[in-house]
Design a protein around this nucleic acid. Sequence first.
DNA 1: CGAGTTATTGATTGACGGGTCAATTAATAA
DNA 2: TTATTAATTGACCCGTCAATCAATAACTCG
Lengths: 225, 225
Amino acid sequence: MARKSEAERRQELIAATIREIGAKGTLNVTTSQIAQSAGVSPGLAFHYFNDKERLFLAAMRSILSEYGNDVRQALRGKKTPDERLGAIAEASFGMTSFRREAISAWVNFYALSLRSEQARRLLYVYQRRLHSNLVDALRPKIGERAPDVARRIAGLIDGLYLRYALDTRGVSNADGEAPELDGSEGSQHVMRAIAAECTEISENDVISTEQADPDPMAILVGPQE
Amino acid sequence: MARKSEAERRQELIAATIREIGAKGTLNVTTSQIAQSAGVSPGLAFHYFNDKERLFLAAMRSILSEYGNDVRQALRGKKTPDERLGAIAEASFGMTSFRREAISAWVNFYALSLRSEQARRLLYVYQRRLHSNLVDALRPKIGERAPDVARRIAGLIDGLYLRYALDTRGVSNADGEAPELDGSEGSQHVMRAIAAECTEISENDVISTEQADPDPMAILVGPQE
DNA sequence: CGAGTTATTGATTGACGGGTCAATTAATAA
DNA sequence: TTATTAATTGACCCGTCAATCAATAACTCG
């Protein structure tokens, strides 16, 4: 049955992995389950990815890049800072990220990054990208205070995502019902927070530079190594 | 060896559970590990908690109530709204919540709540308390817009916590080194966000009531059942 | 002390899951 | 057709782990 190309199989296995993580709500899914969901025998998973960890990391990369594509596409054509900020916010709470599968993947990958150096690195890439997108969009509005504000907005996005994601019947045990989370509220919150931050800054305008926090390039998200 | 009271043993086992979750960075810890860490035989864990799930839930309750105590204590004596908001922020990023054990517990319990109804309920209690604390402290400053703002601030707290918690070498594999996360930055971010939200509101003062979002008591955190 | 109670042990079970590998099958080349 | 390569299978090995349980140690009270 030498059928499909390596690339295809890998993709199918990754998709199956995410599907199963979504269905079970945990990383405790067996290779057999994943293989079965991919319509393939268990051994094949180990043939393409050498162990489970690497399969998970591949799945994580897939989720991350899916989100990245969403943002990129949402930004396409948006020129004004506010348009761009809106695009980022909406992509963060859009359908792609709010499928049960994606939610389960995100949350569990957060947990995974507590024990896996690799996973932590991937998450860090996401954070850096988000931060840099926000800074780019904010700078025209608030200049050098953009990095500081961006850090809060990024935190807000993550936090709200988590809260909406875990909200109520959101996930629970698989059933026929349609959970259908809606993230539009989330992006509205984000936009309001941005508005508030910007208003405040234009208000304190003159003195802002000197009394502001002395090192806005601090730890949280900035190139480290 | 009939030694300690039930209450004591339960407490010891709960502490050991959190300790092990912290050390391994995951909920994949065996009952034997936990028992050993508590200086007790594996069987005893099942004697007091009937299964592992319940042991985890007890640990989660413990973490949650630890945080609750921190907040209560921080609020003690604080009268002005700003003092109270500062207390909440600092408690959220205080030492108690930033030990590696607590971080690992929180993050993994978030993931757990994707598959456990019980865990989700517990998390919901935490969210409701945080929200209500924030609203109480915000209302004197911004009146009926407090709930809406509180939702963002709560999200910001969660999100920043997550980001600081996962930051860099934060956890990784157990070693002798002292990671010693510092959350004081987090609370400063929170205070700045609050300041921004309040400034903006006092600015838009007159029109604010009518153009505000029509239903600030929306889904995210509000009594549901 | 001794009978009854409660805490505690740790060996044991039974299921399960990651990873390996020899064999099989399809596609391709000669 | 035959030879060669590569994908795919699925049974199997070995370790692990949640949960059970019969035995035992410690404590209580008469």
